[in-house]
Amino acid sequence: MALDKPYKDVPGTTIFDAEQSRKGYWLNQFCMSLMKAENREKFKANERAYLDEWAMSEEQKQAVLDRDLNRCIALGGNIYFLAKIGATDGKSFQQMAGSMTGMTEEEYRDMMIKGGRSAEGNRYLGEDGDAQPRHQPQGKAHEPQQAAAGKKVN
């Protein structure tokens, strides 16, 4: 009989359960290694080479290189472990959490000052809240990023 996982229908949310933990074991252990200053230096000097020392999937490595935290979480990462990458990059928890919403830092900070994201419409998949899949990405963070990427190519 299958395990009861009622949390699968909460929009915009991945619960770090035993299954996710198994998938993300090496990804999270890589993150743990960044608690040592010497490893942070090694990682910063050559991210790809450092990641290749770990038994992570190619997808996981790419998600880290892209700093795509939503992807990291889908691939078994846990936010408290991924926070070590943020610390290495000099990012706060608020910057990291905000980066997963598609909002700019300012938009996310303003939302929090105004009382945070409402639970209305965000309790079950299929409601109409701002965290529902069809409303992603939120905010304007992806727009300037695309412009910046375009500039580099030109």
């Binding site: 949310t13 997963m100 994201r117």
Partner: peptide, 15 residues
Amino acid sequence: MSHQLQGPRAGLINR
């Protein structure tokens, strides 16, 4: 108390 640090639902607060 209420908080969510991950995913598109990050920032949830329920006063």
